[in-house]
Design a protein around this nucleic acid. Sequence first.
DNA 1: CCGTTGACCAGGC
DNA 2: GGCCTGGCCAACG
Length: 104
Amino acid sequence: MKDKSALYASVYEILRRIPKGKATTYGKIAKRVGINPRFVGRILSKNDHPEKYPCYKVVRSDGSLGGYTINGKVDPETITIKRRKLLEDGVRFNKDNVDKSSLV
DNA sequence: CCGTTGACCAGGC
DNA sequence: GGCCTGGCCAACG
């Protein structure tokens, strides 16, 4: 993993490894691939593949959903979709935050 | 080339 | 419990 494009692939690979009913955080991924947390979000927002990778399984360390962008879409509805998809996967919620017991 | 930006994080108040 | 600050580091204009 030297190329920056490989970095993207690493992040997506991690998303695929998330078990059903679980979510992960930007910070955990960042540590895993060795980059800063901000860049994780940047990767997902600019180069995500919503049909192939569960980018919606990534939330903030405090359990809040953070953001959710699809193909440059910045509508407030997308964040609602993110929450619904997490629920469909069996991730437990505590009000508007992901239950920490559902984090990996 | 340099300043700003960002799907963040941890710490302090 | 919420808001502010500093730090992080690649990408963008």
